[in-house]
Design a protein around this nucleic acid. Structure first.
Lengths: 158, 158
DNA sequence: TGAATCAGTGGGTCTTCACCCACTATAGGG
DNA sequence: CCCTATAGTGGGTGAAGACCCACTGATTCA
């Protein structure tokens, strides 16, 4: 019975490991931190990626819409958009129909950047999910998707 | 074809939803925040729960061991242990074999508290995982466990 | 018994992140 | 036209979290 593990000195408490939410938070946090670190090397933050993704996926839109969609603070978005604009990844123009609004659109450079960031994110994901084979990863993703949009009353920052 | 969804204004970008790690981080973050909020109402933090869990699961041990196990900063642990001690949830005594060490043990009140905190954590988990049936939750948990200890080179705070 | 090491503690710092307020400019209804 | 509401912006604040340094007391070894 060598399987009577003598509990290594760095093993986490079974009480915590028994909670799926603990594992969710722990693993998600590590993955997020890893990606954030890689983005930081290029002077980017996770919000930059989220904004680019929203623009690529849903097309040009007002900052107001990005605020709704991503749950970001309007003031913070202004800063993100400002930085992305200065770097040439997005363009901002006054909406002629409603000149209060600033319509944001992604440039070709922005699309290229997002593609590269997504590749990096997938690389991180491959590392994190290394113990799972492709079929298992699909199952995991499916379950997470169900959790995500199966709960309307969950509010959280992206 | 009513299923040609017109993309609700608060839908997240598919580019992000396609990343399991994004969902991991988002869901885990929400669950963690929810539990932390409930603990805060009682003047407790997540570290308190982690320390109690380690003591209950592995028995009395020196702070040094808790530091290793939980990856907490020694100085921070001193404060947590101090507070838990003052509230009567743990007892601290100098280890007679090595009087540098402070052996920490959980009291009956501490055990009762942990049981209650775990119940709260499970309640939060039930809310979060509501879209999944019991069998699916078991699958999810199994996959997360595999990810967790299938990756030795992942370092992250509890 | 001196020197080096280790456990624990107190008191900080630094960064991150969400959040909020005041202000400008524009829109639209009465 | 005024009045209210909305879009965006700049400049903050405040809390949380991890981390770090200096110091005490105890241990171990030579």
């Amino acid at each position: 019975m060598a399987s009577e593990n003598p509990a290594p000195p760095d093993a986490l408490p079974p009480t915590l490991l028994g909670l799926s939410t603990f594992l969710l938070a722990r693993i998600g946090r590590a993955a997020r931190a890893e990606l954030a670190g890689q983005l930081a090397e290029r002077g980017l933050r996770l919000w930059d990626m989220a904004v680019l993704a929203a623009l690529v996926d849903f097309g040009p839109q007002a900052q107001r819409d990005l605020v709704r969609r991503l749950g970001i603070d309007p003031s913070d978005l202004a800063k993100v958009a400002d930085q992305l604009g200065a770097a040439g990844y997005v363009e901002r123009s006054r909406d002629q129909a409603d000149r209060r609004r600033v319509s944001v659109s992604v440039t070709a450079e922005g699309r290229a950047l997002l593609a590269e960031l997504e590749a990096r994110a997938r690389a991180v994901q491959d590392e994190v999910l290394a113990p799972l084979d492709p079929a298992e990863r699909r199952v995991l993703h499916e379950l997470l998707l169900r959790v995500e949009h199966g709960s309307p009353e969950w509010r959280a920052p992206a």
